[in-house]
Design a protein around this nucleic acid. Structure first.
Length: 548
RNA sequence: GCGCCCGUAGCUCAAUAGGAUAGAGCAUCGGAUUUCUAAUCCGAGGGCUGUGGGUUCGACUCCCACCGGGCGCGCCA
């Protein structure tokens, strides 16, 4: 039941031991080299040149003498001093066994040791439909949440609703205008109001519920009602979009509640005691400059309302009080200016430096008919996430969002996504999964018995080897994708795994009536691939079909 | 003007904490199926990794300058 270590780690350990025997200890790497250089390779001899004060190739020769063993079919020196390892079949076969034994648990580790962390993403103004930019954020967030769970963290995810502030007043008034239109009462939606058609539908629903109760009437109380009604409608809409995306949040957190429950005032009091705020021009300012080389920022406006900065500090205070040891915020790159002052605020509250990590992603631009579309919620003209899902489907949309590293801008060509959706690499990966399902259906038909875990010792030709090596990488990739906050590492991996499988499938006959043992061995290997692909797609929130 | 991010094949992107001959897919051209799904596989062409310097055994990767694009520099969020 004890799983083996990654082969790479095993090699590294062995080398380390040999170095210790020679009285040396320094950093070096074991990696997967380009083709034709063996299975694994190390730069240990090259890095060691300064430590041994001898030429790399000479060092390599000594090391190789001490490394020889059953695990390796061959160890060779190449190029300027690389040591290339070709590992034994039996070592690779153990990976297959491990995958089959652990199934969907394969890849789980306990690096997190139950550390309580939180991911906040897809946070939005509840003033309109979610955009494709939110879609990108949802996929990045969802995937990281699942990855961190795999790695043994206690993870929660949360959406922050900016349900306070001026934009909500504008939303309420815009809805009121639409509502009155239904009675023939004409009013103008302000320039910076919400002119999208969706508010007409909300207005109709409201009219069905309350009739002409608010026709032509407007006061503070009515404004409150319209705010509550509109925000609730927008929130329900958001939830339905999340559901369409296959996304689920543990909690929706209201910005407004931070004012109402006194958290904001509590923070202000604390800052006052610490002499970190001052009054100027009727507003309350936070001494950002006390912590970093940036200008001070307003916390409370002249009119007494808190700024976004203020409530966000309160929100993060709240997170900390709830017991999260680390929080990750996923923001669009247009928020990057917000990072230093938030960090300063965290410091002011006495939180550890690494309490808050911000994961930034570049924006999504849309292209349609060769033209770039600029999205604007207020103007009411944009492609919504709902529309995108309608056109390309959940799997393709999610995979596409995951596929580009968050640090790169994502250029979403809608025409291409619609027209050539079958070219989307998600199908390439899914197809490998479906193909394997089909293999097992065929095996039953051909009366080829599948015995899990048997005949693995027959695996070892070059196609099988490359599949086994790729399987061995999976655990490492999960860690890497989590560390770099990059689901794209996972999609690249899956495409490569699908690729080596397709090659294996093309060149080796898997179901062979004249050789049941070999058939069973290859079915086992296929099964292992299927388990890993399914798991990988699962982490991305993409389905793994049995048939295509 | 200042700050952050990005620049790799015609297009969309890789390149595993500085490593070997910079790789895939799409597109183009040419092949592969009487047998497990051809949504696949094999092959060909296509590159001064934006430009110029620097660091070292070695640079797409690190440093400096510049060019080009995105974003930010609110009592907006």
């Amino acid at each position: 039941m004890e799983g083996i270590e990654l082969i790479r780690d095993m090699i590294k350990e062995k080398i380390k031991k040999v170095l210790e025997d020679l009285g040396k200890d320094y950093e070096f790497k074991v990696e997967i080299p380009p083709e034709n250089f063996g299975d694994f390779s190390s730069n240990v001899a090259m890095v060691g040149a300064k430590h041994f004060r001898r030429p790399p190739r000479e060092i390599a020769m000594d090391l190789i003498e001490n490394l020889k063993g059953d695990e390796f079919e061959s160890i060779e020196i190449a190029g300027p001093g690389f040591i290339n390892f070709r590992v034994s079949k039996s070592l690779l076969q153990k990976v297959v066994r491990k995958v089959l034994e652990e199934k969907e648990r394969f890849g789980k580790r306990d690096v997190g040791k139950g550390t309580r962390v939180q991911f906040e993403y897809a946070s939005a103004n509840p003033t309109g439909p979610l955009t494709v930019a939110h879609g990108r954020q949802i996929v990045i967030g969802d995937t990281l949440v699942k990855l961190y769970k795999e790695l043994g963290f206690d993870v929660k995810n949360e959406v922050y609703l900016n349900d306070a502030g001026r934009q909500i007043s504008l939303l309420a008034y815009s809805l009121w205008v639409r509502y009155n239109e239904l009675f023939g009462v004409k009013n103008e939606i302000p320039e910076d109001g919400y002119k999208g058609e969706y508010l007409i539908n909300v207005a109709k629903k409201l009219k069905d519920e309350v009739g002409d109760k608010y026709k032509g009437k407007w006061n503070d109380e009515i404004e409150e009602f319209f705010k509550r009604y509109a925000v609730n409608e927008m929130l329900n809409w958001m939830k339905s979009t999340f559901e369409r995306m296959g996304s689920k949040f543990d909690r929706y957190f209201s910005e407004k509640s931070l004012v109402e429950d006194g958290t904001v005032n509590k923070i202000i009091e604390y800052f006052r005691r610490k002499d970190l705020v001052y009054e100027k021009d009727g507003a309350l300012w936070f001494k950002v400059s006390e912590f970093i080389d940036e200008d001070d920022k307003v916390l409370v406006r002249k009119d007494g309302t808190p700024t976004y900065f203020m409530t966000d500090i309160a929100y993060h205070y709240n997170k900390r009080m709830r017991g999260f040891e680390k929080v990750y915020d996923i923001w669009g790159s247009d928020h990057h200016g917000h990072i230093p002052r938030m960090k300063a605020a965290m410091k002011a509250l006495g939180f550890p430096d690494d309490f808050l990590t911000v994961v930034l992603h570049q924006f999504v631009t849309l292209k349609k008919g060769g033209k770039k579309l600029r999205m604007s919620t207020r103007a009411g003209r944009f492609i919504t996430l709902d529309e995108l899902l309608e056109e390309v489907g959940r799997d393709a949309a999610r995979y596409f969002f995951a596929r580009i590293d968050p640090s790169k801008p994502l250029d979403f060509d809608i025409d291409l996504a619609v027209k050539q959706s079958s070219d989307n690499p998600v199908y390439y990966v899914q197809y490998a999964h479906a193909r394997i399902s089909s293999l097992f259906r065929q095996a039953r038909e051909k009366k080829i018995n599948f015995i899990e875990g048997e005949n693995l010792d027959l695996l070892g030709d070059e196609y099988e080897r490359s599949v086994m090596k790729q399987l061995d990488l999976f655990e490492d990739i999960l860690l890497e994708a989590a560390q770099y906050y990059s689901p794209a590492k996972l999609t690249s991996y899956l495409e490569e795994l699908a690729h080596v499988f397709h090659i294996f499938y093309t060149h080796d006959t898997i179901l062979d009536n004249s050789n049941f043992e070999m058939s069973n061995a290859r079915l086992n290997l296929s099964k292992a691939v299927q388990v890993v692909i399914k798991k990988g797609l699962n982490l991305l929130g993409v389905s793994a079909p049995e048939k295509m």
